[in-house]
């Protein structure tokens, strides 16, 4: 299943004094099984774009096709689209409302009109995927859980829809390092084991560098870069010009090159730069 975006434009508050163009001629195809890192500073249009992917926002002009269905079409079943494309908002724990963990996760599947047995299966499966112990936690109140657990319940609530594409808007925002690692780990597993297509909005270049196989950069409502992390992070200057960071490995590689070391272009992972440094050390003083 793929998502095709053609000439997408979106204007906020059309006609008013505060009219702002949030998206401008966006063209993208999201393929099955990709892991996309979507980056851009606040206000670059990322959040507006992801809300188009499941029809929460309708284009001002242009088209969004999910699995061939045009979202703007009156005949399109929005719920079917929202089942296929799951969207996890920023700070998703703020949307929890049910008395128990189990009921909250079941909210999505219930809205899909599934029978109890299937709902039950999905709740258990979703909890397993986010590493929450069903037996111990399913009857607990969501408001008694820790921040990290609440976030995982919220993600499970979207996973229980069994979407083929999972869009996450800054899933690690506000978490401590342990919490971040847990969330990133489960997203990675979801991509690898269940084959779910992932679109992850993130401010952390290091997270994107370590997980994504495609990076899309947005600036002023436009897609300005779209490619492999290797290609995108090779453009360090441009990224910084847009107010974005680059992964630390890219920074180090650049500075080493300035000092005359022969570091290959396109290095963006810590492990890669480590290998290069070890090569330098093995060669000894030739560069000094």
């Amino acid at each position: 299943m793929s998502i095709v975006i053609e000439h997408l434009n979106y204007v906020y508050m059309t006609g008013g004094p505060y009219e702002t163009k949030a998206l401008s001629d966006v063209n993208l195809t999201i393929h099955d099984g990709e892991f996309i890192g979507l980056i851009g500073h606040t206000g670059s249009g990322k959040s507006t774009l992801v809300q188009h992917l499941n029809g929460l926002i309708m284009p001002t002009s242009g088209r969004v096709l999910v699995d061939g269905m045009d979202l703007a079409d009156k005949g399109t079943d929005r719920r079917a689209v929202r089942q296929r494309v799951g969207l996890v908002f920023q700070y998703p724990e703020n949307q929890l409302f049910e008395e128990t963990v189990e009921k909250d996760i079941a909210f999505g599947p219930k809205n899909l009109g599934l029978d109890d047995a299937e709902i039950d299966r999905r709740v258990k499966d979703a909890m397993r995927r986010v590493a929450l112990d069903y037996d111990r936690l399913h009857e607990r109140s969501v408001f008694e859980l820790s921040g990290g657990q609440m976030r995982r319940v919220a993600i499970a609530g979207v996973l229980a829809m069994e979407p083929q594409v999972l869009v996450l808007d800054e899933p690690c925002a506000g978490l401590d390092p342990r919490g971040r690692e847990e969330i990133l780990g489960l997203i990675k597993k979801l991509h690898e084991e269940a084959g779910t297509t992932i679109v992850m909005v993130s401010h952390s270049m290091d997270d994107v560098a370590s997980l994504a196989d495609r990076v899309i950069v947005m600036n002023h409502g436009e897609v300005v870069m779209d490619g492999t992390p290797r290609d995108v992070f090779a453009c360090g200057e441009e990224l910084r010009g847009m107010g974005l960071d680059v992964p630390q490995a890219v920074l180090l590689a650049g500075k080493l090159r300035e000092r005359g070391f022969d570091i290959p272009e396109g290095i963006y992972r810590i492990e890669e730069i480590k290998t290069e440094i070890e090569k330098i050390a093995a060669k000894g003083g030739r560069h000094a």
Partner: peptide
């Protein structure tokens, strides 16, 4: 880290 790498490459 850059300084360390420079030192590594010259000291051996």
């Amino acid at each position: 880290m850059v300084e360390e790498v420079c030192r590594l490459s010259s000291s051996i």
